[in-house]
Structure formats: C-alpha cells, structure tokens
Design a binder for these strands. Structure first.
Lengths: 103, 103
DNA sequence: ACTCAAACTCTACATATATCGCTAATGACG
DNA sequence: CGTCATTAGCGATATATGTAGAGTTTGAGT
C-alpha cells in the first residue's frame, strides 16, 4: 500500500453528506448537486466505497418512463464508522498519529 | 386550418428512415443519428406522428441498469401510406394539387 | 530530497429521452 | 402583398448514470 484510501476532500465530502442522514437512501445525482462533484468524480467514488463495503447500493425504477433508473446508496455500519472518523477529526482529543487514520 | 402538417424536410426525413424497414421497431436515439436531427426536433416530431396515429410506440426496458428505457417506434398502416406519399412524389404522375397533400 | 506506484480527480464523451421558450416557415384570406 | 394563426424547428437545459484517458496527489521506501 503506497497511499491511504478514501481520504480525499471529495470522498470526505460525500461521506459527510451521507452521514447527515445515516439511514437515508441517497441518489448519486442528488449527491452530485449537494457536493458539487461532477459525475466523472462522483460515480467512481461511490463505486469504490461500495466495493469496499462502506456503502450498500440498490437500483430504483424511474417514476416516469424515459428517465434512467436511479442508483440509491446508503452507509453501512462500517461506512458510518468511516464517515465519523473522517468527518469529525476529534478536535481536543489525543494527538492523532498519521497511521491511525488508515484502516 | 392554415397550414398542412407533416410536410417539413425533417418530418419527411424521419418518415423515409422508417419506411426503409417498415415493420422494424426503431429507437429515437438511432433515428436521431441516422437523420442528423437533434433531440429537441426529433422527439416532439415522433410524438406528434404518434399522436396522429402514424406511428405506434412502445417502451423497452434497458439492457443495463442505469441507462434510460428506450422508446421504440414503428409505422402504422396510415404511417406507411403517409411515408410513401411524402417519400415518393411520383415524378411522372398526374400533377399534384396542393390540397391533395393535406390529410 | 527523490523516486515510484497506487489512488484518485477531472474533462470530455456516451447513453437515451424529454421539456421550454423563442424563432421561423407556411399558407389561407383580405 | 401583407397580416396572422398554426405548425414546426432549434438551441439550451434537465434527468440520471456511466466510461476513458490523461493528469495529479499522496505517502512509503530509499
């Protein structure tokens, strides 16, 4: 391993958005508008987190025909833990060693 | 009525494309590439012809999730007749009165 | 400090359909 | 010929997700 995964500003932003309502299913399109990320950044990011077990993903049928189906995402238990770790750097806590941050 | 419907170059182009294989179901996206028409021109046109009974339309589920469903179109009997009328101006035939062109 | 490779971002493009608002073409009628 | 209503075209934008390839960032090891 030459680099810690899931620590980028963009990833942290998505985790924070998901952590705001940890049990809600969120759509990629809505997350992209909320975080300002473009599809080429966001969707690979969501797929990575999903592959790593931090998100669960589900397809939803479109309400209107002619619109694409929607991919819904939600944090798993591990995802909530990761998001808390990244989103709340525990300001007054014990000095955080760099290696602590990596899973 | 102040103007004859379905006589524009664009409409005739679509009718000609459909007439090439009169019983095949064709997708809007493919027709747009074949005829060079942009979506803002093509889809309203297809919907008009469909509303007027010249086309039958059917939704097809996408092969991959995440892609939009496809709207398939095919000429009806009336559609074939209209397309022949428009596509083959019968060069040596009797002089075509303007009113003949209107349905 | 320097190199190296994995992890990641970003622009552009592709898939498909549809609506909105302004403009242009058409042809009947005066 | 000019006016006027109807019909249609067209660019822009929206809905949603995804891939490709080039480039950047990061941190471990030297």
């Amino acid at each position: 391993m030459t680099r810690a995964p899931n620590i980028s500003r963009q990833t942290v932003g998505v985790l924070a958005a998901l952590l705001a309502q940890p049990q809600a299913w969120r759509y990629g399109y809505d997350l992209s508008k909320e975080t300002g990320l473009k599809s080429g950044t966001l969707y690979p990011l969501l797929m990575r987190l999903s592959d790593q077990g931090y998100l669960e993903a589900e397809w939803r049928q479109p309400l209107q025909p002619g619109r694409p189906a929607r991919h819904a995402y939600r944090l798993t238990g591990a995802g909530v833990a990761l998001a808390r770790q990244r989103a709340e750097p525990t300001p007054g806590a014990a000095p955080l060693q760099p290696s602590t941050v990596r899973p």
